[in-house]
């Protein structure tokens, strides 16, 4: 029989797990939003600046909702800004795939295709989460990432099945991101426990549908699915590539130089 004290302890443990899981989702969206934002005014054409900017803003919106929820659930008085701008590199738990430098436009579209296919399968399932807030964020986000998936698909098809040069660069882009794809589907104690409770989606369950979707596009684009060894992972534990620190320096600089500033 559980005593009231035990139940409180259980709830605290659950709450901590939900915060950790929510931050992983939020950090994926936040960091990729920043990487996409780097393309604004640098994309191949004005129309693409706007398209990539829109996609980045969709992801930023998802990140804001998730960070706010993580902060509220944590109950330590941290809001979305505190979590986005005043955590250090080791506290970020995004996957390494989203922090890689953008590379060329082909690499950016290769990564977007993989992430969007993953997020689509993830959010579709998370919309049925027993956690009402996560379910609501996911239900809204799934329509957004469905469009991201389409946008990346259009470009991968055109570049892959385009000129010799575009084909080579599109394949090089895929090769660049592929070692980092596997981390998306990594399972640990946290995801296992939360998936069993109906809060989270088991990442392993997403591997087949997400990669099948990517591979369909890759085949149609006359490209080859890279056969490469997975990179060493660790993003979910705060272990990152050398690139995240520089990204955060740029993203957090303004908020840290002028704390509390607003316009």
């Amino acid at each position: 029989m559980t005593t009231p004290t035990d139940r409180t302890a259980d709830r605290t443990a659950d709450r901590t797990a939900v915060v950790t899981y929510t931050l992983r989702l939020a950090d994926d969206a936040l960091v990729l939003a920043h990487r996409l934002g780097e393309w604004i005014a640098a994309a191949p054409q004005l129309e693409e600046d706007i398209a990539v900017g829109n996609i980045g803003l969709d992801l930023l919106g998802q990140a804001r909702a998730l960070l706010t929820y993580a902060g509220e659930t944590e109950g330590a008085g941290r809001d979305e800004d505190a979590l986005a701008y005043f955590r250090d590199e080791r506290d970020f738990t995004n996957c390494q795939l989203v922090e890689l430098p953008g590379g060329d436009f082909a690499a950016t579209m290769a990564r977007l295709l993989v992430v969007a296919c993953y997020q689509y399968e993830l959010y579709r399932r998370l919309a049925d989460s027993t956690d009402e807030t996560l379910a609501a964020v996911a239900a809204k986000a799934v329509k957004e990432v469905d469009y991201h998936r389409d946008h990346a698909t259009q470009w991968v098809l055109r570049l892959g099945d385009g000129t010799d040069v575009s084909h080579q660069r599109m394949q090089a882009g895929l090769d660049l991101v592929w070692p980092y794809v596997h981390e998306l589907f990594e399972v640990d104690e946290l995801t296992t426990a939360l998936a069993a409770a109906g809060v989270a989606v088991d990442p392993a369950e997403l591997r087949e549908p997400a990669l099948q979707a990517v591979e369909r596009v890759v085949a149609e684009a006359t490209l080859t699915v890279p056969d490469m060894r997975p990179a060493v992972t660790g993003g979910r534990r705060g272990v990152h590539t050398e690139h995240l620190g520089y990204l955060l320096a740029e993203m957090q600089h303004m908020a840290r130089s002028h704390p509390g500033a607003h316009w």
Binding site: E47, E48, I50, A51, H151, R158
Partner: peptide, 11 residues
């Protein structure tokens, strides 16, 4: 044309 529709959606 398909990209034009998508760009129009975004712009």
């Amino acid at each position: 044309a398909p990209m034009a529709v998508r760009n129009a959606r975004d712009v």
